[in-house]
Amino acid sequence: METEKQQAIAFSQLSKVFQNGTAALDRLNLTIEEGEFITFLGPSGCGKSTALRMAAGLEEPSTGAVNVFGRSPKDTIENTNDIAFVFQEPNLLPWRKVLDNVILPLELRGISKKEAREEGLRVLDMVGLKKYAKVFPRELSGGMKMRVSIARALAAKPKLLLMDEPFAALDEMTRQRLQLELLEIWEKEKTTILFVTHNVFEAVYLSTTIAVMSAGPGRLSSVIQVDLPRPRQSISRTDELFSAYVKKASDQLEDSLDEREDVS
């Protein structure tokens, strides 16, 4: 009983066809255990964001279902504070200062201003932006805005963190630093993370599991368990085993692209 982990997310036969007829996702079947760091890796338009949005209850499935911690996403959101989402864009409120943006989830829950501020400063410190607490978002660079957006999700103290290409717009240096920070947070807080990326290196470096997806319509094409030593900080990105995983993931990504070409 103890060894059996609870399911964080269960996608079952989940499909989405938009009103305009676009088939974004086709019968996705996947279960994610609590504490996993799972990455959706796939070409643009394969339905990664759509799957994430359905897991967050922001979009209704056309057929099939998705469950989060054993209940519907809407249910989870209404009754618990377990889900946080980092959008593809920073999505900050321009009329709020950085700290006020970060504490928004806490404020909406009715947590006292003082307590919320303390927590806000703590997570801002984590992403290295404590001294920008009193600044408006427009005064920040794109990368800094993204970090604020991540801090906002962390402030919510979620059990499930959904991240939609959070590092795509960042320079390589910032990206690597944030990857490390994210891993540290994941290890410390025991959060389940569902992460979306185009970047094979990033997928291998971060994940316990990679779900490779193919487009048109979006399908899960294969699942790779990444069995690299932890903490990842200890391994080099040029390590042989690391490279082997990168190659494997790249090959499968390519196969999934071929599959699509065969179909069309």
Partner: peptide, 27 residues
């Protein structure tokens, strides 16, 4: 839409959305 999603995601009530999102956006 994304800002509206953000508020839905953190379970904002109708009036919280009004005061903290819609009204400032409408300024």
């Amino acid at each position: 839409r994304e800002k509206d999603d953000l508020f839905s995601l953190y379970n904002a009530s109708k009036w919280q959305k009004m005061w903290k999102l819609r009204l400032p956006s409408a300024m």
